[in-house]
């Protein structure tokens, strides 16, 4: 009986560790998420600018876009890093929040 109980506890522990590891790998860290969602952005970065940079990276000439001041270099770097780090969704949430605040 004790062996069974121990086995169940070990299995639960192993599952929890595995799930925790997977979650940590696939999601942005909590600190990072909080930073993107809540921190004050630099003057040359806007959340919608980061999304626009992502769109232009997928369909246009990003250097020309920076040269014509449609997006900033910082926004392009953030967009590139967000795509690689899977944090673009956080930038969308930040942009939604900023748009809502601006429209009030």
């Amino acid at each position: 009986m004790r062996k069974i109980l121990t086995g169940v506890l070990v299995a639960i522990g192993a599952t929890a560790i595995a799930l925790g590891t997977l979650a940590a790998c696939s999601l942005p860290t909590g600190v990072q998420s909080a930073n993107i969602l809540t921190d004050k952005l630099p003057d040359n970065v806007t959340a919608d600018g980061v999304l626009l940079a992502a769109v232009i990276l997928s369909s246009g000439d990003i250097q020309a876009a920076v040269e014509k001041k449609i997006v900033s270099s910082a926004e392009v770097n953030q967009a590139r890093d967000a795509i690689l780090a899977n944090t673009l969704e956080l930038w969308r949430q930040r942009a939604e929040k900023d748009v809502a605040v601006a429209s009030q």
């Binding site: 942005p28 860290t29 600190v31 930073n35 630099p42 003057d43 970065v45 270099s73 780090a85 944090t87």
Partner: peptide, 18 residues
């Protein structure tokens, strides 16, 4: 142009590590 970014942006430590 990509190196002219001097902004400290949110999530800088984790994102920029990449």
């Amino acid at each position: 142009l990509s190196k002219s970014d001097s902004s400290g942006t949110p999530g800088e430590s984790s994102i920029d590590s990449g």
